[in-house]
Structures are given as C-alpha cells and as structure tokens.
C-alpha cells in the first residue's frame, strides 16, 4: 500500500486480529508495546520535546512572556540574548521567543486538527466501505481514488488557494488531503477482519451491523489507523507551515511559523540566525512527531 501524502510505502504490520475482538485482545500485547517504548530512550526524548512544544503552545498566555504583538521600531531585529528578549526580536521588534511559542498554537493546530478530523472522517468512511462492501465500497472508494489523483501539496495549495487564505480554509484543505489515505487503511483493515470467522459467528447470533462494527471492527481497525495517523502529523505540520509560507494559511499578524519564516526572509542578511529560527521550529516539531511515530511503529511491530 502506498501512502498518498509522502509516497511512502507503508510496511506496517498491526497487532494480530485476535478472534474475539477488541476486548479479548491480549493485554500482553499492549504491555509489551509500553515496555518496548519505555526502553526506547531516543523516542522518549522526542516525545518529551513534542510534549514541551504542545504544552508551551497551550499555556502560552500564562507563561508571562512578552506580548507577541507589541511592536517597537527601536528594538527591531535584535540578536539572540538581547536584554529582555531570549531569542531576539523580529522585523517589527516583537519578541521572537514569545512569537515562536504562540506560533506553535497555529502551527500545531494546522498539524493536529486536520489529522484528527481526517482520522475520524476517513476512518469512518473506510470502515463503512469495508464492512458493507459492494456498491457502498465502490462509491466511497472511487471518490477517494479521485482525491488520490492529486499530489498532496497540489491539493492543499489548490484548495486554500482558491478558497482564499485563512486558518479555516487551511484546515479544510489539509483535512481533505489526508482523508483518502486514512480511508484506504481503514477499509483494507475492515475487509480483512470481516472475512474472519467470528464476525460470521456474531452475525449468526443476530447482532446488528452497527453493533458488530462497534464491538469487533473499530477496535481492530483503530490501531493501524492511529499509527498511520501519527505519522501524518509531521506531514501536516510541514504542509500547514508551507501554506502559511506561501501566504495561503495563517494571516498576519497572528504568529505562525511558516508565516514568520516568510516575513523574516526579508531580513535574512541582517540577522540570519534569527531568520532561521521559525524554520528550525518547524523542523524540530516535524522531526519529533516523525521519531515518535517511528518508535510507536517499532514498538507495535511484534515481529521486530
């Protein structure tokens, strides 16, 4: 299977679908996953870094940071460590550290919300398509195929470019980009599970479709979908900041890493280091989520 957003070949091997469904799945499996993760210091480090960035963004207003909107012509483009400004100031004299922390709010919003929404929508569509098969499957999956025909960056740029900039349109664009691949994963996992004996058995006892989906299917589909979705967060962070960089995402003066990178580019000869910081923030965030998802995948891959 091929991942639409990166073209990456998904080599995920999920937990074995134990007959009896989600509740009956061995506790040993999850305990093993947790144990393996605990021993993976590399992944734990990036997990801590990601949590720090998220936490900073969440509690930014209570950190006692300088006002990220307060401009000052006397203090523009000051270097790192300039008095009162941990990471210097931007082209309008605003505190860069504060803007980076606040910028995390929009950048993470664009990184996480679309993935969550796409997981819910795409996952549900995939389960429905996989479970009901035939015409329903045909309809849903063929529509997904059409969206698959657009490279991710192109689709995101096309949607936010035509609808106009703004956070909302950016969220819509990114969500639409991620739905097809999540839908495909959910669909193929559902198809596999549906073929298993215990579903037939549940059917025979007269369980309704929805209760079968709820009790047997969702639990088993969830794992591959969530693991895959976790790898999409870094893609979404990169893409979302990229949209803002092109002037299609978050609009100024709201701080956002992509938009900050784009406007600080003008001053790159004055303070190259300062101007590189928003890019570095994007890089570190994306890196953390990638390592976390990689660690998660390794921990869950029972074969490894």
């Amino acid at each position: 299977m091929t991942d639409i957003t990166t073209g990456n070949t998904i080599t995920f091997q999920g937990p074995p679908a134990v007959s009896g469904g989600a509740e009956a799945r061995s506790r040993g499996y999850w305990a093993g996953v947790a144990r393996r993760l605990r021993h993976d210091r590399f992944t734990l480090f990036f997990l801590a870094l990601a949590l720090l960035i998220i936490l900073g963004a969440l509690i930014a207003p209570w950190l006692g940071l300088p006002d990220p909107f307060q401009t000052s012509m006397a203090r523009r483009l000051k270097p790192i460590g300039f008095k009162g400004h941990l990471l210097g100031t931007d082209e309008l004299g605003r505190d860069l550290f504060s803007r980076l922390v606040y910028g995390g709010r929009t950048s993470l919003l664009l990184g996480i919300v679309p993935v969550v929404l796409a997981t819910l929508i795409g996952g549900l569509l995939g389960v429905v398509a996989g479970f009901f098969g035939r015409g329903v499957n045909m309809l849903i999956m063929r529509v997904m195929d059409v969206f698959y025909a657009f490279p991710s960056v192109l689709l995101a740029v096309a949607i936010s470019g035509t609808l106009g900039g703004g956070i909302l349109n950016g969220l819509i664009a990114l969500t639409l980009v991620f739905i097809p691949s999540l839908c495909r994963i959910a669909e193929s996992a559902t198809v596999q599970i549906r073929a298993l004996d215990y579903i037939e058995a549940a059917r025979a006892t007269g369980a309704s479709n929805w209760s079968i989906i709820r009790t047997h299917v969702i639990g088993n589909v969830l794992t591959p979908v969530v693991v895959y979705a976790s790898s999409l967060i870094s893609v979404a962070v990169l893409l979302g900041a990229g949209l803002s960089f092109l002037g299609l995402g978050v609009e100024p003066p709201t701080p956002d890493w992509g938009q900050m990178l784009s406007s600080l580019r003008q001053s790159i000869y004055v303070q190259p280091l300062i101007c590189a910081l928003p890019g570095l923030a994007i890089f570190l965030t994306s890196l953390s989520f990638n390592f976390i998802s990689d660690g998660l995948r390794r921990a869950m891959d029972v074969k490894a």
Binding site: A276, L287, D294
Partner: peptide, 26 residues
C-alpha cells in the same frame, strides 16, 4: 542511516532552500 532518513522527511524544504541560497549563492 535510519535517523538520516527520518531527518530527511522532516526538513521543511522551503527553509532548507533559503539556507542553501545564503550559504552557496550569497
């Protein structure tokens, strides 16, 4: 090499391009 490959997919290329221009062109 695994670390390098993950780093590769995490770099915002619009940022890398700017850095490369500063270093190699300017």
């Amino acid at each position: 090499s695994t670390t390098l490959s993950i780093t590769g997919v995490s770099v915002p290329n619009y940022w890398l391009g700017i850095v490369l221009v500063i270093v190699f062109a300017v």
